[in-house]
Amino acid sequence: MNSMEKDTRLIGREALAKLFAQWLGEGRRILAPKQSNDKVDFAEVETPGEVSLDPVQTGQSPKGALFPRVEELFSFPSRDGRVELRERDLAALKPTVVFGLRPCDAAALAALAAIFNWDSADALFSARLAALTTVGVACNRCDEYCFCTSLGGGPGATTGSDILLTDMGGGEYLAEVISEKGRQAIQGAGTLFQPALGKDKESRLARVEKAFDLDKVKPALEALFDDEAFWVEQSLRCLGCGACAYVCPTCACFDIQDENGRRLRCWDSCGFGLFTLHTSGHNPRPLQSQRWRQRLMHKFSYMPERQSVLGCVGCGRCSRACPVDMNILEHLRAVAEAKP
């Protein structure tokens, strides 16, 4: 992609509405941040007017577009005592545009893909990913929980977005067309765009300060693994719910459940006490401190080592959602600065 010439244009709010209409006309559904009750979360929209880009971040990540909280893997209708397996029709999955995801969420797609496809391909995940186009919106604001820049990302980073928009003010967006999927999403819509005329997004971007040295985190985590006192101290107030995992754009632990003739995959979390419990009653991770360690190890040590990608993008959702104010940024800083 680097070898290609950078494709940057301008698009106005009204033209964006036409682009939405074009996508709907092509049979795509559009998921975008939408206000409902007192929360802004990804939901189906038809016009840019329904989209709310006001909050720094949505409460939940857009990962449900690829990894829904419950999905059928296959069904097994039973006829006259004979079991028959009926697979999902992947061609029936609706092509989807996720609009308005932040650069951190776009970067998270690589982590999800690494988990689902690192060894054998996960057909359902891969089919959803193939049918997904991401139109990101760069961040012009951030808050104290954001730390994308500490992990190699940034408020204007293009990784994972097929098209990245930056709000230039005055109802105008700078559109960077990043990928082939992005080009396809605006095919035939050339007249909706104006030339960028050298406009630059940098001045519009939020300033997210680097909070720690990422290079120190992995070795520090590994050195700290057996330091029980450290992990107990770090996680004393953690109550072991799954809020952090469920709002996380990269957490992908799952359970498999049979129900009403269907085999379902549903979200699960390594933070739950029963997650690793053996039938015998033995539990390899009986304490919350060990489960909190697992959460950090998985994202910052195991995934980089086994799947060559970080399991965190610095979106800060877990910290915002945590009922007891566990702040992952603080914990990473503590790890990076720990002297085991």
Partner: peptide, 19 residues
């Protein structure tokens, strides 16, 4: 080793012993 598993294929996040 007999850790708890769901997927059996390295995805569900349950059976890991360290990395």
């Amino acid at each position: 080793l007999e850790n708890r598993m769901k997927c059996g294929v390295g995805k569900c996040g349950r059976c890991n012993v360290g990395k």
